[in-house]
Nucleic acid binder design. Structure first.
Lengths: 126, 126
DNA sequence: AGGTTGTATGCAATTATGTACATATAGCTA
DNA sequence: TAGCTATATGTACATAATTGCATACAACCT
């Protein structure tokens, strides 16, 4: 991959919240909607949307609208080298470091009906 | 590795010039002095020093002074996981993308005497 | 000591990034 | 249609990164 491209991707990814978003997408390997991120990461909705927009802007991530909900996933059309780069990065993480988010997200996913999110996010974001 | 640590390293590394510096250090696997970087990368001396300072600040790189010259290398005491991270990142690069710098650096290294740099950098930095 | 050369740093100007809030938009439902 | 909910975006502000330049510092040499 070109050096400029690598630098660009690293810059996009070099942010705590965006890393957390990517980890959850990688680990659960399924579509996750914005409100599920909000609850799992305990980050205000506008921030989640903003980070997702950045990731989307670099084509790392893709959103699919289903009604009012928008489900995000790692962009399945990502070039193989970029894909491997991302995976490689995340492999360096201690899993304890995001286990709490994993658990929270798991709880949220259990609230889905027919595989779909049916509730919003908790307004009382501490 | 902790997620914040990963984000921090990625942020430090997510810069075209700093990536080029790291590539050269990895590929040549030896001490390289500031003026050699200046000529190889064709970047003003103060910029090279600044980028090296940032890399040094995060302990990714180490400088050893020998007379007026300062030779840099990948920090040999880098924790193994960090070391692997850096190596992993650089492996994604097309080597054509930095082959010119490699050649220029090779030429510069040939001008060393007894393994030591004996000239400065070219003032006429285009 | 004085001059020279390689390297580092401080400062100012610009640009980019992060954050918070308000509000807009899209699609649902009644 | 109106109202609601999920998501997206615009704006404003603070903060950080980048860049260019001048200059300081360190070590050498005469």
């Amino acid at each position: 991959m070109k050096l400029e491209k690598l630098a660009e991707i690293l810059k996009t990814v070099a942010h705590e919240k965006r890393l957390r978003i990517l980890v959850l997408l990688e680990e659960f390997d399924q579509n996750i909607c914005v409100c599920e991120f909000v609850d799992a990461l305990n980050v205000p909705q506008y921030q989640v949307s903003q980070h997702l927009r950045e990731l989307r802007g670099k084509d790392l991530v893709r959103g699919n609208r289903d009604g009012t909900w928008v489900y995000y996933s790692i962009n399945p059309d990502l070039p193989r080298d970029v894909r491997r780069l991302i995976e490689g990065l995340l492999e360096h993480l201690d899993s304890e470091d995001y286990s709490r988010e994993m658990e929270k997200l798991e709880e949220r996913l259990e609230l889905r009906e027919d595989g779909k999110c049916v509730i919003g996010y908790d307004e009382s974001d501490e």
